[in-house]
Nucleic acid binder design. Structure first.
Lengths: 305, 305
DNA sequence: AATGGCGATAGAGATTAACTATACAACGCC
DNA sequence: GGCGTTGTATAGTTAATCTCTATCGCCATT
């Protein structure tokens, strides 16, 4: 029993004439005859009474035809689903973003994606890189926004932008009069850092290797966020390093805080998109990338692909 | 897209492993691989993300699989319908009976059929032979009970029983003292007859050809029934001829009526079943025949097949 | 760098589906 | 009653499709 057989069956039930039904199915009369006969043998029931005068459907035949129509209808739905699903910009997209990017990127990203792909709602999760990577590999996420380096088997990445780091200090700090800060000097001040698991923490420590050893001078704030640290800096608890998208939007006239760049070469992080090599909706990822690049993130430099 | 493809699809969605899914479908892994690939091409959507680690279903794939399961379920219903319909004794049987048999046969027939084939309800219609024949050919009836001769293209008949004719007369009639009545004498008395269209009327006139010409002596009662005629005979309006199944059950002590046989050779009618040569439920017809023969119809003689 | 698991691909063989041509059955017509 | 017409079934051939075995290639792991 195949869907073709069922189509023949339904056609014959409608036409009550092998020749006409065959014509409607664009096959020859013997083809349809044989198919019906085989179907009757397979089901071991007589579906039609053939006589010279006409073709009559049996009671059981009529019931089976009705069921066959239902099958064909449901099968047609598959094609409809496929047609509807063919557009990579339709259907929800599950996006993951690391904590140190989300709050600054998403307010810009979301409306832009909505405009570019109105029927692609975003399901967003913020988390650590490691957690995002796991979700991505499991299929719980479709694409994630992380900082490089990021290498995972089966995952491809595409750099989107570079983002320089800034030094954030309280007003009145001794470095306030400097134009730019040298990375090496970070070890001198109490440096407030995010907890382990945040890649940004590691990147900052890489900028200033001495900070790692100069124990006591840096303080790790578990379960915290950049915003929390910013407030702590404002109270004079220490200094910190922020990505430009988090640091630069601060009103320069903020009475309690001062932002300074690093001396060249500026340390920076490279932000990238990552997805499974096998992920089929590349069009959706393109939209995300474009929307990120269209977002006004302070200080960032696009990376040419 | 075939039902087989959909079975492969559903299996793969369940197993998330080409090899295992193929095994479950009793085919080789390449067979399943190719089938899925072709399905994806036909639908122009990616249903699964393949990677070394595992097989993930896409969102659109999951929706299509759900739909495919629905299709397979409905298709399975076809087999169930066929299995249920394979028994010729299941499902209603549309039976036609001529007016001069119905009232005497059906009260016996119906309970016997119900006992022999409980899941075969009878849909019964009484009518003239010509009307029954038409309905039978149209397919509105499955089998009819008529008197022979009955010849129609595409229709087969099977004699069931012979039924002798009786003379019915009011008490006190001059023939009351006769043991048996000669057919030729019928022309002498006012003979009450059914209206045109009833085959029994023609059969009676054939028994007594003189009645046709002896005008005035026979009276045609249009729109009447044997029972009505019986009552008229009781009032002394004339005599009539009845089939034995209608005449013999009359209590012989009935004060108003007398029943006499014809002198040999007794005239009789041959009652038969008729159905389309193409009708597939011959088992159902056998049940009807057996039930008729098991019915206690007064005076009838079974006809060996 | 080697290995093993897993899906994709290639090529051969077998099955099946379709066609054309024709047989066969039934009915209607002359 | 023979004959033509109509309509379905059958035969035989060809083509498409399905499925197989064998093998490749990729990737992740040891």
């Amino acid at each position: 029993m195949t869907l073709t057989d069922l189509r023949y069956l339904v056609a014959l039930a409608r036409e009550r004439h092998f020749g006409h039904a065959a014509e409607r199915c664009n096959v020859s009369q013997p083809t349809l005859s044989v198919a019906i006969k085989k179907l009757e043998e397979e089901l071991a029931v007589t579906l039609f009474e053939r006589s010279a005068a006409d073709v009559k459907i049996t009671d059981i035949g009529a019931r089976i035809v009705a069921q066959a129509e239902k099958v064909l209808l449901e099968a047609g739905q598959i094609k409809e689903l496929a047609t509807a699903g063919r557009d990579p910009l339709s259907g929800p997209l599950k996006v993951g973003v690391i904590y140190t990017i989300g709050p600054y990127l998403l307010p810009h990203l979301i409306p832009r994606v909505h405009e570019a792909a109105p029927s692609m709602p975003l399901l967003i999760q913020e988390n650590y890189t490691a957690r995002l990577a796991e979700s991505l590999k499991r299929g719980d996420l479709d694409v994630i926004v992380v900082a490089l380096p990021f290498e995972e088997p089966g995952i491809v990445t595409q750099a989107v932008y570079d983002e320089p780091f800034r030094v954030l200090m309280p007003s009145g700090h001794t470095w306030e009069k400097e134009e730019a800060i040298a990375a090496s000097s970070l070890a001198e001040a109490p440096l407030l850092l995010l907890g382990a698991g945040n890649c940004f923490r590691d990147q900052v420590l890489e900028v200033c290797p001495m900070c790692r050893s100069g124990e006591g001078l840096q303080r790790t704030l578990e379960g915290s966020s950049l915003e929390t640290i910013r407030h702590m800096v404002a109270t004079g608890a220490g200094i910190t390093v922020l990505p430009s998208s988090a640091a630069d939007p601060l009103p320069d006239g903020n009475p309690l805080l001062r932002v300074r760049p690093f001396v060249a070469p500026e340390p920076f992080r490279r932000v990238a998109l990552a997805w499974r090599v096998t992920y089929p909706r590349s069009g959706a990822i393109d939209v995300i990338r474009s929307a990120i690049l269209a977002s006004p993130l302070a200080g960032v430099r696009p990376v040419n692909r």
